[in-house]
């Protein structure tokens, strides 16, 4: 008897091939809806720290595609964790696993429904991990998710993490995107 999760989740893998459009590089790996099947998958795939630069993993609720354009993402945003190069060895895998456990374990109390998924970007210039939520206007939900997430990652008070609207990320880039919330 396996332990059912509240949601069915889909793991996606993105591998950068500059000759192809973005969406052609995105692959659905598998779906799962039990604790046991999550671990069978997690134990089978590469750790994020061992992926080639330019690759992403995304874990989203079933039916939500890991892109801004999806109906359930387009009004939303993300709590973004940016990591230094040094953190890849020490913290990247640990932070990503903690992110996954927050998602599948439904760690956000009354606001789990606001969570769409999470993305990890492995990049030479610095890795990123983010939890995506569905509506930037749901301030209580966004802030609760951010505070809980920061606690679960064990980030100290002095570290500030920011929440950015996808609509802003899509039109601006890099440091031009301003935080809608911080915790």
């Amino acid at each position: 008897m396996k332990h059912p999760l509240q949601n069915r989740w889909t793991l996606w893998f993105y591998k950068n091939d500059k000759t192809k459009p973005w969406q052609a590089n995105l692959r659905l790996v598998t779906k799962f809806d039990t604790v046991e099947d999550f671990w069978a998958l997690y134990n089978h795939i590469q750790l994020a720290s061992r992926l080639m630069s330019g690759c992403d993993y995304s874990l989203f609720k079933d039916g939500i595609e890991p892109m801004w354009e999806d109906n359930r993402n387009k009004c939303g945003g993300r709590w973004l964790i940016t990591l230094s190069k040094q953190q890849r060895m020490l913290e990247l895998d640990q932070f990503w696993l903690e992110t996954l456990l927050c998602l599948i374990g439904e760690a956000f109390d009354d606001y789990n429904n606001d969570v769409c998924g999470a993305v990890i970007n492995v990049r030479a210039k610095g890795d990123k991990i983010a939890i995506w939520t569905r509506d930037t206007e749901n301030q209580k939900a966004v802030l609760h998710i951010g505070k809980t997430y920061k606690e679960r990652l064990g980030l100290p008070m002095r570290i500030v993490i920011g929440y950015q609207a996808h609509a802003d990320t899509a039109t601006k880039s890099g440091f031009g995107v301003k935080n809608k919330f911080v915790v």
């Binding site: 999760l5 509240q6 604790v35 046991e36 999550f38 374990g105 760690a107």
Partner: peptide
């Protein structure tokens, strides 16, 4: 009911899953 699992509970299954 809602199925919520804390991290220790989830972590407890990592290697049980691998051995089955």
């Amino acid at each position: 009911g809602k199925k919520r699992y804390d991290r220790e509970f989830l972590l407890g299954f990592q290697f049980i899953a691998a051995s089955t």
